[in-house]
Design a protein around this nucleic acid. Sequence first.
DNA 1: AGATTATTACACCGATCGATGTAGACATTA
DNA 2: TAATGTCTACATCGATCGGTGTAATAATCT
Lengths: 208, 208
Amino acid sequence: MTDKKKPSGQPDKRRAIVHGALQLFARDGYTRASLDAIAAEAGVSNRTIYNHFTDKAELFQTVIQDSTRRVADTMIDIIDRHLAKVVDLENDLVELGLAWLRLLTSDLAPHFALIRQINAEIEYIPPTALKVWQETGPGRVRQELADRLRQIAGGGQLTLADPLRAAGHLMLLISADNLTDRTALHDETELAAMVSAGVRAFLYGYKR
Amino acid sequence: MTDKKKPSGQPDKRRAIVHGALQLFARDGYTRASLDAIAAEAGVSNRTIYNHFTDKAELFQTVIQDSTRRVADTMIDIIDRHLAKVVDLENDLVELGLAWLRLLTSDLAPHFALIRQINAEIEYIPPTALKVWQETGPGRVRQELADRLRQIAGGGQLTLADPLRAAGHLMLLISADNLTDRTALHDETELAAMVSAGVRAFLYGYKR
DNA sequence: AGATTATTACACCGATCGATGTAGACATTA
DNA sequence: TAATGTCTACATCGATCGGTGTAATAATCT
């Protein structure tokens, strides 16, 4: 499944390229981000990029997979940290949601700009790449969350017919806001209010 | 406020250009959509575009404003149709939400692709243009919805401290889903379930 | 009809960009 | 030392694109 690649060249150079490319792809999008600019951002020669990647497209693909994996890992960490042992379900879910939303302004911020780029160019991206991204990213997070929810349901605090579906709903209700309206920046209290509303909506449908 | 323009040239040509440009800007984004392609799509000479618009940027701006105004008008129509006389508030809100979401697959669909493009290139778009778009588009819809909600609150079915804020929350809860996850196409029943969940979340917080 | 304006097709310029070639500098390994 | 592989700077190619000039044609107006 996971295609084995031959990462030729020096690893630190490769990492610098991927990191720099993420910054520029996130800010300027696939087309507008030039390889010269990426090379400059990475502190690397233009030619070196082609020593590590065959194509601009392959570089883009690598950047997506790399960033997606890192962010998904972080989100799963947050899930485990907040839902491993539940004391107050509503409060724990709100804290989980807030921790997620705080990622939007963390050093992982460029990732979400990249996601917006992908979303915009979705008609232009090969469906297989899109499927892979979906599975190794949001899909994995949703699966982990579903497992935790099922575990909680086992304790009698929830009633779940379809945990995976419920996990999807919860993720949606938590993170819906800032992903749509980018013009209004919400302060921390407003953020908390929105997350609370989302969590309550979830519990309203699934609590028992 | 509203800058008076001098729409030189033949109106039908201009309309054809704007319409064709919307299709290509929506599909390919600002950068990738070439003027030659737009001209071909509109059935118009390349040179004619520059007879109606000074710039690619001005054309883009015009397309945004035009499409935004049309969609906002449609959404406001839907508001008026469902909330002019409320009999069953929850049901009417759900129907309103479903009518809104149906726009995503209507002939207005390119508009939302365009919005995704704007969202992606948001760092690249002049803030003033962004502000104008926000005000004549979602802002106007939100204002209209707020007015209706205030009217309903006058009847005692809602308790609103800040109708405008409440309107924003409701719009968010209704339309959050499909704007984020574009990979999974939701069927009609799932759509209805999501809208219902959003409406219930809204009423849970505001009903009295 | 005559005058004016809009539209068209075509050629062109300058700039950008992806990608490749080349040759030398540098480091590592045998 | 010799060999191998990577990195860098630079030069170049072909293609695309935004924008302009021009001259002929078509549509509109008075």
